[in-house]
Design a protein around this nucleic acid. Structure first.
Lengths: 355, 355
DNA sequence: CTGAAAGCGCTTACAG
DNA sequence: CTGAAAGCGCTTACAG
């Protein structure tokens, strides 16, 4: 049989009420130091852990936070969630909270679950993760249900009062532009994803703004292209650029998309006997890549996918405490990771590498 | 204010007890079809969802399963957990259960959490994930606490009665050997991880057994090597093999480790003007790789990291129902994924590719 | 077939 | 400073 509060109260010859007060460190409960020690000792001896259900029912707090999201398909998205649960679990445990995870195939199911958990009082707060198109209705529902929440994404325009976290996408592309400009490049192409989501637009905006600020002029539209994360689409973009006359050809590439942009870039350069380089005078690249990323030939600076963990970890000091305790500071957190040298196989891309 | 059972009972002019019985579809409760319909209708109208805490406290079931593990570091391990939570959440939701996730830095913390959750009755069952060295003490603790659980790993020797799931590592390497033997290869090298864990030994055992069975003789020890998942270590192994006289040189490679084994293999072959091929007479390879995996030059058959999701999904028909309902069948599940063509950039690895 | 009552294990005012 | 009592919102025998 499990140990109950009554058991430890009997053991120390005190009322359950007092024992409860001591165990929860309640301020308005008086007990001598000796009594406190005896209570703690007895609880430990009997391996007492209060029933979560009873506790939640009586004091109205579940000490549980729910992470809710719509499942996304595709490797890029799967990788973007890697480490997320680990980071939140760690931070919540440290605050005495448990993490519940609920994900569903459709947005309707997610909204139904939010409604259920709110009415069933299954958690004290929620964390929403995913695309803005999904999380916005979810957040609005939580608002109406009066449940505190934290949301991943860029909701600053429509919901500046929401507690939200995301990468500083503009800053990331700014740093990438700074990097290649510092190597002397002036014709800098941008390869991104198709412009469907907020972060994709933010990435491109970062490139454009940094380009204007650092070089003093807007990038030529022919230097901005996009593709899904596949080899064919990215190869087309890159081939077009590399086929330009030498005095128009871009010499640097800012990557705002996935691994296949890098693969395509390296492959096209290799066919021409070139490799990415960090030396002035060569072809250079900087930008984002997915979790598992290794260049074949050259060298470049990249934000590694590993940074996604940092994003969840950034939520800890401010946002998590905010939704748990109702603080008002730290509503919007934007995280700017560092550019680091990408791992490379360092293969030779001589002219014989021609496909 | 949240809707309570009492509210819907009042709405339909019935006792809470009857409404509870109808809502839970209890068998020994009688109510006319009309009454049932009115109750359901009222519950829906009032958006009634029973308090999880009250329900758990009164009927002793939490409808929650906890996934517990020690956090592991390293990309390979992070990737191995990708999709795990998604798969379990999906399967549990379908059965009316919520998923709780608790992970910790140390084994001591994991064991303490298991003890706490068991005594606090925070869940009905647990899922243990991780290395056998961690999960074995965890499982033994759960045994002693009488909590049903499901464990990932190979515990068939010491705990054949445990509900457990893992890949069929021997079968995977058997299929890889079959693949290259079918292409006519007879000198088949094996590149694995250092022999520290059960699955690493199982992979190698699969290679050895299939080799003996299919070729009629045991593999030469010089054809079996291992390395951590880095470029240097794997390159050393591969270079040694490729430097052998032609009549001793292996022509096929079974990979029981990570992406850098493939990268090293491709790089070493490329320096000699070769690429992996599925044609008889060339160099061939087959085996495991991590989640995000793209060959640079050649073609090969691989188990993609994506398969880890299937592992969690395999737990659904048998094991999950077993721990939730106490069925006795399906104690040990071993999952054998399919070898598929690896994605490749298809770059030319001509002699000019020499580094 | 139906409803009143006890109980799950805590917490929290509220009297002594 | 301390303890008896009510209550959180359900479920489940158990009488009518």
């Amino acid at each position: 049989m499990r140990t109950r509060l009554k058991d430890v109260a009997e053991r120390v010859q005190l009322s359950p009420a007092l024992v409860s007060g001591v165990l929860n460190g309640r301020a308005n409960v008086w007990a001598s130091e000796d009594t406190r020690a005896r209570v703690l000792e007895a609880a430990r001896e009997l391996n007492y852990h209060p029933s979560t259900a009873a506790k939640a029912l009586s004091n109205g707090r579940t000490n549980t936070v729910a992470l809710v999201y719509r499942r996304l398909s595709g490797t890029a998205y799967r990788l973007a969630y890697t480490g997320l649960v680990d980071a939140f679990s760690e931070q919540l445990q440290a605050r005495g909270y448990d993490l519940m995870v609920s994900n569903f195939a459709t947005e309707e199911e997610v909204l139904a679950q939010i409604r259920r958990m709110a009415n069933a009082h299954a958690c004290d707060a929620m964390i929403l993760w995913g695309r803005e198109a999904d999380t916005e209705p979810q957040g609005e529902l939580l608002d109406s249900l009066n449940i505190p929440f934290l949301v991943k994404g860029r909701h600053e325009k429509k919901h500046p009062e929401w507690r939200q976290i995301d990468f500083d996408h503009e800053g990331m592309m700014r740093q990438a532009v700074e990097q290649v400009v510092s190597l002397g490049h002036r014709r800098i192409a941008y390869l991104g994803f198709p412009l469907e989501e907020a972060f994709v637009r933010a990435l491109r905006r970062g490139y454009v703004e940094a380009h204007e600020r650092l070089l003093g002029f807007a990038p030529d539209v022919q230097y901005m292209d996009s593709s899904e994360d596949d080899l064919e689409g990215n190869s087309q973009c890159v081939e077009q650029w590399l086929s330009l006359p030498e005095d128009q050809r871009p010499t640097a590439f800012v990557i705002g998309s996935g691994n296949y942009a890098w693969h395509a870039l390296e492959a096209s350069l290799a066919r021409r006997g070139h490799a990415l380089s960090q030396q002035p005078g060569g072809y250079s690249a900087a930008g984002i890549a997915s979790y598992y990323f290794t260049l074949s030939f050259g060298e470049a600076m990249a934000y590694q996918g590993i940074e996604i963990d940092n994003l969840a970890q950034q939520a800890s000091p401010g946002l998590l405490d905010a939704i748990l305790c109702g603080h008002e500071e730290h509503r919007i957190v934007r995280f700017l990771p560092s550019l680091t040298p990408a791992p490379t196989l360092g293969l030779n891309a001589g002219p014989g590498g021609q496909a």
